[in-house]
């Protein structure tokens, strides 16, 4: 108990002696965490959105001729032979017209002059939900185009591909900002501790002469780094949460964010980021302690 009290008191003394630098360090750690967590938040939301989009993938084969009831089992068998699908829905011209009419709701008058035959019949193929591979979707699409009377296949794979490129780009940004976070945190904490050690050089020397143990001298400095990591990460994540709340409230509604179901980090991930901040700052402290303090 007495040991802990001394360690805490020494830590407090360190913080007081170099408070200006400590504040700057805290701000730097906070900003680093904020920048990283911001990109990471967008990235995790994009990943979830791409998973949702992948789940909604369906391939529509537009036909130049109606498929009769007799033809359906044969076509269905052929499709299932290529790969497992969740379901296959045959849509006749009349059904397509009726769907469009229902979608237009009050505006359905625009269809009045058009006959029910103006829309092509189609087959909607719903692949299994684990079919997220764009190459496989593309192969499936090519196969469907080879079916008798197939005129065009709409898979949305181009859009998914572009979305995939964007997600990959974001991944790079997250990795870069993560790297920046690691460098910034370890460097700045190491630098701050170096200043602390320099400012207390005389005192540390006397403590050494008086028989202070390694733990007595080093633990407060280690604790200082841990505290900086904890406080900086907490402030960074809190700032991000308020930023998220602002964005969510400003862009709520039937738009982009509603489509992507923009959400904050789950508790576990928030804890993991906090822990990473603490670990990085502690590592910076350790580096500095090992380098500048000889006992």
């Amino acid at each position: 108990m007495q040991f802990l009290a001394y360690i805490l008191r020494q830590t407090g003394k360190n913080l007081r002696q170099t408070w200006g630098t400590q504040v700057m360090t805290l701000l730097t750690v906070t900003l680093s965490v904020l920048i990283f967590a911001f990109f990471f938040l967008i990235y995790t939301n994009m990943i979830r959105a791409s998973q949702r989009l992948g789940d909604d993938v369906r391939l529509i084969v537009y036909l130049d001729q109606e498929v009769t009831e007799q033809m359906r089992p044969g076509i269905e068998k052929k499709i299932r032979e290529f790969g497992p699908v969740e379901k296959i829905v045959f849509v006749s011209r009349a059904e397509a017209f009726s769907r469009l009419s229902a979608q237009l709701d009050k505006e359905k008058d625009v269809l009045a002059d058009l006959g029910p035959d103006f829309l092509p019949p189609s087959i909607e193929v719903y692949p299994l939900k684990n079919l997220h591979d764009l190459t496989k979707i593309s192969q499936f699409s090519d196969f469907l185009l080879s079916l008798p009377h197939a005129a065009k296949v709409q898979s949305g794979s181009d859009w998914l591909r572009r979305f995939g490129y964007f997600t990959n780009l974001l991944r790079v940004v997250v990795l870069l900002s993560g790297g920046l976070l690691i460098i910034t945190m370890t460097f700045i904490i190491s630098y701050t501790l170096r200043l602390t050690v320099l400012s207390r050089q005389g005192e540390l020397e006397i403590l050494r002469l008086l028989g202070a143990t390694s733990a007595y001298i080093r633990l407060p400095l280690l604790l200082e780094g841990m505290m900086q990591g904890f406080l900086g990460s907490s402030l960074g994540l809190t700032a991000l949460y308020f930023l998220y709340q602002y964005i969510a409230s400003r862009f709520s509604g039937p738009g982009f964010l509603r489509l992507f179901d923009f959400a904050f980090f789950p508790v576990e991930l928030t804890g993991a980021i906090l822990l990473a901040g603490v670990v990085l700052c502690t590592a910076g402290s350790l580096f500095s302690i090992r380098r500048f303090i000889r006992i």
Partner: peptide, 22 residues
Amino acid sequence: SPAGVQRMRQKIGVAYQEFRLL
């Protein structure tokens, strides 16, 4: 060992010629 030296110094009081006060 270095830790042993530190423990030993706790039991030895030294008044230095140059005081070494803060």
